[in-house]
Amino acid sequence: MKKKILVVDDEISICLLLENFLSQDYDVVSLNNGSDALEWLEGNLPDLIISDIQMSKMDGYEFLTNVRKRGFTKHTPFLMLSARAESKERIKCYKLGAQDYLTKPFNPEELEELVKKNLFPIHYAIEW
């Protein structure tokens, strides 16, 4: 059974790009705002969440905060995706509970490695 990844980004092109990169190995669900994603999470549990920061209706910070307050998603790995490259933005995301932060435009190979790192932690690695 494939691992499930929830992608939340208001840019449809980014959602399609992530689906294209990830859908061969993972089940990918894309939603365009944090409110819809929280509603989707009421009945679903992804193995990883990838979210943009700058979104309409609910920004990525608020979405992440809400995800961390919920019992079932409290420990779900979370990767923030943003055009903001400043260190203070990364630190804010880490303090809110994100495991990783990837800057747009991103390298697909780096995305792949961050996804693997979060879905298959190093202590489960077969090869060293």
Rank of each mutant, 00 (worst) to 15 (best):
A125Q: 14
K3F: 01
R90T: 14
S87I: 15
N118M: 15
S13A: 07
G60D: 01
V29S: 06
K104E: 10
E19Q: 13
D100L: 09
F63D: 02
R68S: 04
L119I: 01
R68Y: 11
I12P: 02
E113N: 13
P77K: 07
L81R: 02
F106Y: 05
H75L: 12
K117D: 07
P46A: 02
F106D: 02
V29Y: 00
M55V: 00
Y124K: 15
F120A: 07
S51T: 13
E109D: 08
L79T: 08
E19M: 02
L96D: 05
L22M: 10
I53W: 00
D27V: 11
R90F: 14
F21E: 02
T103I: 15
L45P: 00
S35Y: 04
K95A: 13
L111H: 01
E62K: 08
V115R: 00
A37P: 04
K88T: 12
G60H: 06
D52N: 06
E39T: 15
L6M: 06
N32Q: 11
R90D: 06
W40A: 08
E86I: 07
D52W: 00
V29M: 04
E86C: 10
T65C: 05
A37M: 05
N32K: 15
D100E: 15
D10A: 02
I49Y: 10
E39H: 15
A85Q: 10
L64G: 02
E62P: 03
K88S: 11
L64P: 06
K3L: 11
S23N: 13
E19F: 04
I49T: 05
N20M: 12
K4S: 09
P77C: 02
N66P: 06
Y101E: 09
N32E: 11
L16P: 04
K69Y: 04
